[in-house]
């Protein structure tokens, strides 16, 4: 009797995922495998970055405070890239919020609990989704318009050079699991609906939602990847890896925020403040 429920929840989450995230793994793979008529512009050094920036700035202008745009040109390259990362993160947090609302039971939770789940879940979800846009050589950016190489990101000055390499290392292990967007939709829902985030008031209600998602995820993986029976436990292990990745990322961002002349977007400040 659980079979129809399982299928409908998996389908519902997959549809919400395709609706709310402008980039998904299927789309990203088309760009990353060079199957588009206009291949992404490759950013691999300062010259190609400057060339790409004009386009990136135009794309971001709609989202960006005018003060940020006018001071952008005067900033050093690392600070500019940090700012771009922040705007991309804010956009993804907005998408994740809409996706979370589509998880059955989420919107009925206490509003403060919803905030807590997002505060602790969005970066874990973001890094899981970011893997779809990565291969061993680089990262797809600007809606598939650009590809920034891993080597270039590593060549930035410290501490900015330490920002992306751990995400690439995670992404290579994560991408080896060969999940598709329907799997990722349930995985992201499981990340968000997590009963052990600090400060939750109605833990049992969240655990009920979490259990139903995890149950559906397990069955969905068995039917979608019949040859890989260990996929479910492997994926649960990735939840722990993501938590560690976010802890380290939060420390790095707090460090950059203290030592560099780089301001943090108010939404991201809310998320990082008193996080761990």
């Amino acid at each position: 009797s659980q079979q129809p429920d399982t299928k409908s929840l998996a389908k519902q989450m997959h549809e919400a995922y395709l609706k709310h995230f402008h980039m998904n793994k299927a789309k990203a793979r088309v760009f990353l495998t060079g199957k588009t008529s206009t291949p992404p512009f490759v950013i691999h050094d300062m010259d190609t970055l400057q060339h790409a920036e004009q386009k990136l700035i135009t794309q971001l202008l709609g989202n960006m405070a005018s003060g940020d745009v006018s001071t952008l040109r005067e900033r050093e390259v690392e600070a500019r890239l940090f700012l771009f990362c922040q705007y991309a993160s804010v956009a993804t947090v907005t998408e994740l919020t809409e996706f979370a609302k589509a998880v059955p039971g989420f919107a009925a939770l206490d509003l403060n609990d919803q905030v807590t789940l997002l505060k602790y879940g969005v970066y874990e979800a973001l890094f899981a989704l970011l893997a779809s846009c990565m291969n061993k050589d680089g990262l797809l950016v600007a809606h598939g318009g650009g590809f920034i190489t891993r080597e270039f990101l590593k060549s930035l000055r410290k501490p900015f050079s330490d920002m992306m390499e751990p995400k690439f290392q995670f992404a290579m292990r994560f991408n080896a699991l060969e999940l598709d967007d329907s799997d990722l939709a349930l995985f992201v829902a499981a990340i968000i609906c997590c009963g052990d985030r600090p400060g939750l008031s109605d833990v049992s209600q969240i655990e009920r939602i979490q259990e139903s998602i995890i149950h559906v995820l397990r069955l969905h993986l068995l039917s979608n990847h019949p040859d890989n029976t260990l996929l479910f436990p492997k994926l649960l292990q990735k939840l722990a890896d993501l938590r560690q990745l976010v802890t380290e990322h939060a420390e790095l961002v707090q460090d950059i925020n203290k030592t560099e002349d780089a301001s943090l977007h108010p939404l991201l400040q809310e998320i990082y403040r008193d996080m761990y």
Binding site: A65, T97, L111, L118
Partner: peptide, 20 residues
């Protein structure tokens, strides 16, 4: 609540863009 006012707003208003 004040500490997370943008997250509150995102959760409550489905189509409101983040005030940047």
């Amino acid at each position: 609540k004040e500490k997370h006012k943008i997250l509150h707003r995102l959760l409550q208003n489905s189509s409101s863009p983040v005030d940047l």
